[in-house]
C-alpha cells in the first residue's frame, strides 16, 4: 500500500510538469500581457520595456517557464494585475471555493444517493420515471440558466436567501449556490446509483441477506448499498476536482469571490501569473483527488489490493 502511494505520487511529477507547461504555453500564446495591462491606451515603449524586464517577459518561453517553476517551489506564484501576490489571492479564494465545494458534495451525496436508491429499487414505477425525467432536464439545461432561475425564485422573489453572497461567504449563504453547482453532478450521481442498485438487487448475496432474516433496512444499507456505492464514490471523488475549478459560472452568478471568479478575472485581464498559478493548484487538487479515489476503492472493495 505504502509503495503504491509512493509510486502514484512519483507518477504525478511528469503529469504536473506537462500540464503546467501546457497551461503556461497557452497563456503565453494568448497575447501581450503588458499591452493588456494598459487597456485601450498604447503604453509608453520605455515603460513597457521596463515592465517586461521586471516580469521576466523579455526571456524565451522555456526560460520563463523554468523561472516560474523555480519561484513556485519557493512559494512565489507571482503578482496579480492589482499588485496583490497570487498566493494571497489564493489564500482568500480557495477557502471560499472549498466551502462551496463541500456544500455541493454534501448535496450530491445525500440527495443523489437517496434518489438513486429509491429509484433503483422501484424501477419502472412512477417515482422512477419522474426522477429520471427530472435528471434529464437538469443535465440538459445549462448551469447559467438553472443558476439565474433559482437565484431569482429563492433569492429575489421568495427572499429565502440572499441573492448575492457576501465577501466572507459563510456556509449558510452558500447553500443555494452549492445546490446550483451540484445539480448536474447530482443528476449523474442519481443515475449512477440507480443503475448500480438495480443491478445489485438481484445479486445472490442480497438474496442471502434476505434469507438470513435480516431486516429490510439492513439488507439495503449494509449489503446492497455498500456494494452499489463503489462506482458512485469514484464519480464523486473525481468530481471534487471538477467542482473546484468548474465553479466559474456559479461563482459569477452569485458574485462569489472564489477560485472561479479569480480565474475569470485573470483570463479577462490576460494575467498569466494568476491563471497559471490557480490552474497549477487545481491540477494538484485533481491529481490528489484521483489518488484518494483509488485508495478509497481498496477500502470499499477488499478484492482490490494495491502493491
Amino acid at each position: 500500500m505504502g509503495r503504491y502511494v509512493i509510486r502514484r505520487l512519483l507518477q504525478m511529477i511528469p503529469v504536473f510538469i506537462g500540464s503546467t507547461f501546457l497551461i503556461f504555453f497557452m497563456v503565453y500564446a494568448l497575447g501581450d500581457p503588458v499591452a493588456a495591462l494598459f487597456g485601450d491606451r498604447a503604453p509608453d515603449p520605455a515603460t513597457a520595456q521596463q515592465i517586461r524586464h521586471d516580469l521576466y517577459l523579455d526571456h524565451s518561453l522555456g526560460a520563463q517557464y523554468l523561472h516560474y517553476m523555480k519561484n513556485i517551489f519557493i512559494g512565489d506564484f507571482g503578482t496579480a494585475f492589482n499588485g496583490e501576490s497570487v498566493t494571497s489571492l489564493m489564500g482568500s479564494a480557495f477557502p471560499v471555493t472549498i466551502r462551496l465545494t463541500i456544500v455541493a458534495i454534501i448535496f450530491e451525496i445525500i440527495i443523489g444517493i437517496a434518489l438513486g436508491v429509491v429509484t433503483g429499487m422501484r424501477r419502472g414505477k412512477p417515482v422512477d420515471t419522474g426522477v429520471l425525467l427530472l435528471t434529464l432536464v437538469v443535465i440538459s439545461v445549462p448551469t447559467f440558466v438553472t443558476g439565474y432561475v433559482l437565484q431569482y425564485v429563492f433569492g429575489v422573489r421568495l427572499k429565502w436567501t440572499a441573492p448575492s453572497v457576501s465577501p466572507s461567504a459563510p456556509f449558510n449563504e452558500l447553500i443555494l449556490p452549492g445546490l446550483v453547482l451540484a445539480l448536474v453532478s447530482l443528476a449523474y450521481v442519481t443515475r449512477l446509483t440507480r443503475t448500480s442498485i438495480a443491478e445489485n438487487t438481484r445479486a445472490d448475496y442480497v438474496r442471502t441477506a434476505v434469507a438470513k432474516g435480516l431486516p429490510r433496512h439492513r439488507v439495503i444499507i449494509r449489503h446492497l448499498l455498500r456494494n452499489s456505492l463503489i462506482p458512485v464514490v469514484t464519480f464523486i471523488g473525481t468530481d471534487i476536482g471538477a467542482l473546484m475549478g468548474g465553479a466559474i459560472v456559479t461563482e459569477r452568478i452569485f458574485n462569489i469571490h472564489g477560485v472561479g471568479f479569480q480565474l475569470y478575472q485573470g483570463i479577462l485581464r490576460n494575467n498569466a501569473p494568476t491563471v497559471v498559478g490557480f490552474v497549477t493548484v487545481l491540477v494538484l487538487v485533481f491529481l490528489l483527488a484521483n489518488l484518494l479515489v483509488d485508495l478509497l476503492y481498496a477500502v470499499l472493495d477488499p478484492r482490490i489490493r494495491y502493491a
Binding site: Y205, T208, K212, G213, N227, P302
Partner: peptide, 25 residues
C-alpha cells in the same frame, strides 16, 4: 416470516462465492 428465516429455517445456496457478500468479512 422474517423472524423464521435464519432462526428456524436456514438456507445454503449453490454458489458460495456469489452468495457471500464480497465486501464484508
Amino acid at each position: 416470516r422474517r423472524k423464521i428465516r435464519g432462526r428456524k429455517i436456514a438456507m445454503i445456496f449453490q454458489d458460495a462465492l456469489s452468495s457471500l457478500n464480497p465486501v464484508l468479512s
